[in-house]
């Protein structure tokens, strides 16, 4: 039940995700904010990410979905530029990911809330705001945006789990980034708050911010304009929620994703390479 217009999607074919747009744009969606080509990350002898290529459209919400352990956090870290990568290119707003000139434009909210427990809500937001030249008024605005306007003087350590993670979110919003990466921002939040946050993300996208949001809850995929489905270090597909429903043959997004995974497993079993890898006990 996506509440926004569907994107024309060039990457709808299973196993053929959007080729990293060499021209720097995804057709029909304006310029790409992020382009990834052949991104690979090894940790030890295992692939955490294997040869990913895709583009993320500007001014949209892109959902990054997959089971836990599928590489979502590593992928976000690579896009933010804090992850050492083994191979491939990640380009963000036309620059290599992690470039010093991007630090004002890219926001990152980690999965575990990273704020100072011994500071108040406002002091936390003001400190991170100061890194981007933002003032007290900007901090108040960010606090209000996440519903913490009444708890400004409260010590972060004294907040509930949901409030605590919203402080972390506000610390990213205060910078007013062009591109915001959120790693499982809605985990542990109650349904009302989750709906609030998603509508806020939609407003931000409408105002031109590009959002990349990871989640392992498939229901939330419906709020996204475009989905990256990750499974076992690989990009299973990049498509819109509507296409996922059509392809999976059901309106239930979770079930649709499962169907895609099953189809993928079948396809792999019929590939000689995959059979050999399985016989050798390969991880993939």
């Amino acid at each position: 039940m996506s509440h926004r217009a569907e994107l024309p999607n060039p990457g709808a074919v299973l196993h053929a995700p959007v080729p990293a747009a060499a021209s720097g744009g995804t057709p029909g969606t304006g310029p790409a904010s992020v382009t990834v080509e052949n991104l690979t990350v090894h940790r030890g002898s295992t692939d955490v990410l294997a040869d990913l290529s895709f583009a993320i459209p500007a001014g949209r919400i892109t959902g990054l979905l997959g089971p836990s352990g599928s590489g979502k956090t590593t992928l976000i870290r690579a896009l933010v530029g804090v992850q050492k990568i083994t191979a491939g290119q990640v380009s963000v707003l036309g620059r290599p990911a992690g470039d010093a000139l991007l630090r004002n434009d890219v926001g990152y909210v980690t999965q575990a809330a990273s704020v100072y427990r011994d500071l108040t809500v406002l002091d936390n937001i003001r400190y991170f705001g100061a890194m981007h030249g933002r003032n007290r008024a900007d901090a108040l605005e960010a606090a209000t945006a996440v519903g913490l306007g009444d708890l400004l003087k409260r010590r972060a350590a004294d907040l509930s789990g949901g409030q605590f993670s919203r402080v972390s979110l506000a610390c990213a919003l205060v910078a007013k980034p062009q591109l915001l990466f959120l790693d499982e921002p809605t985990v542990g939040l109650d349904p009302v708050l989750r709906a609030d946050l998603w509508s806020q993300f939609a407003d931000m996208a409408k105002a031109g911010t590009t959002l990349v949001i990871s989640s392992h809850v498939m229901e939330e995929a419906g709020h996204c304009d475009s989905l990256l489905l990750l499974r076992e270090a690989r990009l299973l597909a990049q498509l819109t929620p509507a296409e996922l429903r059509r392809r999976g043959g059901t309106d239930d997004l979770e079930l649709a994703f499962l169907h895609l995974i099953q189809a993928d497993e079948l396809a792999q079993e019929h590939t000689p390479g995959a059979m050999r890898a399985q016989a050798l006990g390969g991880a993939r």
Partner: peptide, 13 residues
């Protein structure tokens, strides 16, 4: 250990 350092280092500081 709290992740604030990693976060700070993604800002222009």
């Amino acid at each position: 250990t709290s992740g604030t350092l990693e976060r700070l280092l993604t800002t222009p500081i």
